[in-house]
Structure formats: structure tokens, C-alpha cells
Design a protein around this nucleic acid. Sequence first.
DNA 1: GTTAGCACTCAACGTCGATGAGTGCTAATA
DNA 2: TATTAGCACTCATCGACGTTGAGTGCTAAC
Lengths: 353, 353
Amino acid sequence: MIILDERKRKILQAIIDNYIDTAEPVGSRTIARKHEIGLSSATIRNEMADLEEMGYLEQPHTSAGRIPSDKGYRLYVDHLMKLRELTDEEIDYIQNSMSLHISELGQIIRQASIAISKITKYTAVSMTPQTSRIRLKAIQVVPIEAGKALVIVVTNSGVIRNSPIKISEKMSPDILIHISNIFNERLSGLTLDEINIPVIRSIENKIGTSNEILMPVLRGVEECITKIDTPEIFLDGASNIFEYPEFRDTVKAREFLSKLDEKDVLRTLFWSFDDENDVSIQIGLGNNNEGIKDCSIIKTTYSLGDVVIGSIGVIGPTRMEYGKVISSMNYLRERVKEEIENVIGENFSKGGR
Amino acid sequence: MIILDERKRKILQAIIDNYIDTAEPVGSRTIARKHEIGLSSATIRNEMADLEEMGYLEQPHTSAGRIPSDKGYRLYVDHLMKLRELTDEEIDYIQNSMSLHISELGQIIRQASIAISKITKYTAVSMTPQTSRIRLKAIQVVPIEAGKALVIVVTNSGVIRNSPIKISEKMSPDILIHISNIFNERLSGLTLDEINIPVIRSIENKIGTSNEILMPVLRGVEECITKIDTPEIFLDGASNIFEYPEFRDTVKAREFLSKLDEKDVLRTLFWSFDDENDVSIQIGLGNNNEGIKDCSIIKTTYSLGDVVIGSIGVIGPTRMEYGKVISSMNYLRERVKEEIENVIGENFSKGGR
DNA sequence: GTTAGCACTCAACGTCGATGAGTGCTAATA
DNA sequence: TATTAGCACTCATCGACGTTGAGTGCTAAC
């Protein structure tokens, strides 16, 4: 099935390119002049009327030019758009910000988020998932000073969390090691939601409930797990939206920024569209989302084996420079992959297993 | 020295109260009617002319009412203003958000920052200091799995940082403990800037440079120290500024938000005025600071012994509800103190020693 | 010392006509 | 049959202009 004849495609592409550039409704004459299609404005006018009828264009009011509809953008993104190569400066910038050799995965993703907000001039959102598939890898109890120790939990998604606890002053390091070993033996390899009452009981049985170290350590482990399981969301470059005329109205800007402050909304949005490709795109965010309904999200997800470790997205007006954002994301994705492999030293793959 | 006679003070207070409330220049008639001063508008007009001459008031243009000058606000804050009691809801809110029993100091301060931005409806800024007076308290190297370990550094300001390192696969836990002990012995008690080449050398001598574990651990410690020394700044409730008519202009709002994104500016501002009292106030942020020049900062600093552990501030238009913000800060301060004592279990004092 | 009265100032607001970009339709053209 | 020139019509935008009303400073009376 052919979608649109060649001429209509060319015209639609020209219109959308122009609109992305100027944010002004584009008229037939503009297209006839600026884009080398050998047609008069009248002909283009007829084609535009057709395109509107097919739902690819809209008219803000009778005597204005046309603007693309969400359907129009979709076609544009899927078939018409040209990817925009990154400039040398942009490549340099990404290289630099990704070669800090940060050791924690969350930090790498955050860094990438900052980079993409800088390069695309849109707002970047980065988040960690809340997933029951994360497995514990190691648990350690480490003495800090008399009466104080640190519980440390490491997961297979590369997250490290710690929680300070108070213990009896006369607790010897040997006991701590012993307890660490038991916790490790019983908990490591389990996913977060496999840790339940029976498992805890089995630890209690092994150590003995009377042991005064058990409770603080348990509480410490619990706190670490809570921290791991508490999804984090970061915004970078939120004030970039002021670049764009669609937010020149304070009310609009406010609604946008307030919406982004509602982390749960953002989370729902982010995981609501699928991610079959490396980079997936949601055009138009629907009517329930006052403030961001005329926005699009372009996002990518990072995994380690079959565990999702985080996700980065760019949110901006539907009139977004899709070509540029997508190229940036693709490139950044490669760099992040390399960096994660560097740090973890394991194989990194998109999904699969 | 008496500052202003009783009548002028009453009138000034009434004007500032009114302006803080409405954001509109206030005229003589408004004061005569709304505030029970038994004077006619004409008399008040004369007094207002006096107050303007003395520099406490300003006139946006000839036929408008008066607005307070920075000097006026200063007098207001120091002598005229009434503290506004917190409502039961506000107290409840603070109690709840402070009783999560978070174990890390940075998190407690962040939590307090979120709370105060919610209650005051202004933007809250929280930051950790960059100070050379922080001392290391403990260093530990903990095995995670074959070939991987974690370096953990704890400071006397309650900050805990970790850094994963790669080690030889056949490294035994005993050696790690041994190395931990040496690092502890040589580094704990030192301030960050006391850790220099000779100190490192002494560790090398003790362990022996040939030891293949030394370098990764050193690098891990270094990374932890960098993390400790990297000041963090958080903004909460940045979109609150849209509440206020002085930012109804998109340009203004944008300048404000962009300025807050420049972390170093914020840092400089924050530490540029002194903190003799629990809560200190800077009225008007000067002309170098486009975007926030007509703003005030109200801030408080938290210390543990003689080490500053963090600072929380509220930034908003000079026309700020000083009474409310100050009460909230005072109350929150008490709660944070309690919470820190809870966690640390040591005495907490403002500065002194 | 206080107040009533009055002339004057000036931002804010609404009205109104001019302007111009853009459309749809029709008739002429290739 | 497809394309284009021409024309009447629409409608947002913008500047000019007069009105309104809040507020002032000053003077004269209380």
C-alpha cells in the first residue's frame, strides 16, 4: 500500500519542515517559493485542501495557513523526515560528558540526560524503573565505629544502596561478617518481591531471634530495598521550554512545568507506549494531560541483560525537531552502552535475555 | 535612636502588609480605609511623601501608589513585621514529612526543603557545602563478588559515599580487611585537604606499591572524596513562581528559572551573606543578577558540631511573606534538629563547637 | 496639625479602522 | 485533464485614539 502520491508527500514534508522551523501556520505561497517544487501556489493550495481532508493537516482558522496534525507528524516521522547529522561540536560535547567514567549506572544515565537536554534544547526526563525483576546480588554489614554499622545492598542492575544502623557497642566484626554471610546466602539471587515473611523467618531461625543484631540489620536491609524500589525521576533543562513560542504564554509554561512536577503522571506516560525499537516516539500526549497535551515524547530504554536499568526521554512541543532528537538519542545510546560495558564489564544487550 | 515615629511606622507597616498581599502599588486612600488609623487620606499622603523622601518607599510613576524599597523591607523585617503562626495543617504537614526517619543527613535536609517549598509556596534551595573542614571517619573495602569490591567512605558530617572497584579475582577477604585497616589508620580523622601526596606515600610504603590491590582502592577512595567534595544543590517548587504576578511575564519567569539553573551563582549568593542568626535574610539580590535582582532569600544553615552539613533557603520576590516564611523556617529548624539528633545520636548545635 | 477640595497625571482598557497573509472558487490556459 | 491566474472574502494583528479611574500634590479652610 502506497501512502500518498509522491507530490503530496513532498508537499506535506515541506509544510512540516517549515512549521517545525517557524512555528507559524504555513501558507501555499511560502511552499511554492521556498521549496523547489515546480508548482504554483494555487496547485499547492488544492493539494493542501486534500491533505487536510485526509487528516494530515489542520487549519487554526479560515484565513490562516495549515499546521500539521498528530497524524501528519506520525507520517512525517515514519516516512518523510530526514535524520539530521550531529555536528562535530555536538559529538564532542557528548563524548566529553560521557567520558567522565562514572562508576554508578544511575549516574551515567543522569549524565546522558543532561547531555541530551543541552544538545536538543528540549527538556530531558530520566528515570529508574520500579521493577520486581531486580535481584539482590550482595548484602554486607560493615562496621563504621563503635556502635555504628552500615548495611550495603547491591543489585544485579548495578544499583548500590546503603543504610546506617545502630548496633551494640560490643559487637565484634566477626559477628557482623557471620551475619552478612547468612543474609547473603538467604537473600542474594532473590528478586525484590521474593523477599517475604517465610524468607525472613528462615534467617531468624538461623541467627536466632534473641540476637540483638538481627533487628537493626533487617531494618537496614529493608530500608535499602525501599530505596532501590523507590523510582527516581530527574528533569534536566526544564527551562528550555521558554525557547519555544508555544510556551510564550505564562499559563502554558506554568501548566507544562507543573505537569512535569507530577512524577507519577510522567512515569505513567513514560511506560505507556511500547519500546520495540531502540528509540520510540509518542506524538501528542492526549487530552487528559493539560499542559503537555500538545507535546511529544521521544524515549529510549537501557537494559542490562533482561533487567531494565533506566530510561531517558525528551519532551517538547509536537512541533519538535524529530530528526535531530532521534539522531542525538541514537548516538548517545551507543556511548552509554559503551560506558556501561566499561563499568560493568559484562555484556549489555537491549532486551532479549 | 528611635527609627521613625509611631505614626510613620504604623503607616509603613500598613503599606508593606498591603503590598505583600496585593502586589499593587498602594495609595493613601486604601490605607485610610482598610487599616484602622484614624487619619484622613490627605494626612497619610503627607506621611507617605515623607517616607518616600527617607527612602523607605518608591513610586513607580507619578500618579501611582507607593511600593516599598529594599530599605523599607529591611525596616519591616527587622522591626515592624509580625510573625505569622503556622496553621495546624501546616504543622501536621511538616511533622509528617519529617517523621519518615530517613537515615542520611543529606536526605533529611532535602526533605525539609521540599516541605518548606510546599508550605511557603516559594522556591526552596537546599545545598551541601564545599568545605575542607569535613573529616574522614571511616574507610572500608568490602567484597561484592569475585573480582569486584566496594570502597566506602564515611565522614564526620554524616555523608556516606561508595565507589565500586575491580580487583583481582583471587583476592581474599582477609587482605581487603587488612587494607581497610591501613587506610583507616592513615586517613581517618584527616580533613579532605590534609590528604596529600606524603600521606598517600605512607600508605604505599606500608602496603607496598607492588600490591595490585592498592591502585584500585586508592582510585575508589579518591572517587568517594570527589563525590563528598562535590557540592550538591537541589531546587524544589521552582514552578511556584508562577503564582506571583511579578513573574506573569514569560521573560521574567524565564530569567528567574534560568538563573536558578546556574548552580554556581546560587552557591555564591547563598554563602555571600552571613548567618549570625538562626535564620538570615537577604533583601534584594543586586543588579548583577538579572532575573533574580528583585528577589529575596531567607535561609538557615545546619551544622553538626562545628561542621556545616547543609543549608536551606527560600527564594521569592522581595514582596515576600516574610512573617510566614520565617515562622516556617524556625519551626522546621527545630524538627530537623530533632531528626538529626535521632539519626546521629549526638549533640547537635548551631555553630560554636 | 489635620482635612476637604481640586486640578493634574498616567497606566489600563476598549473601540475602530487599516493592513496583509492566506483561503476557496472560478474561469482561462497548456 | 491538470495547472494557474485572478478575485472576492476572512480574520488575526496592530496602531491610533479617546475614556476611565486611581492616585498624587498643593492650597485653603478648619
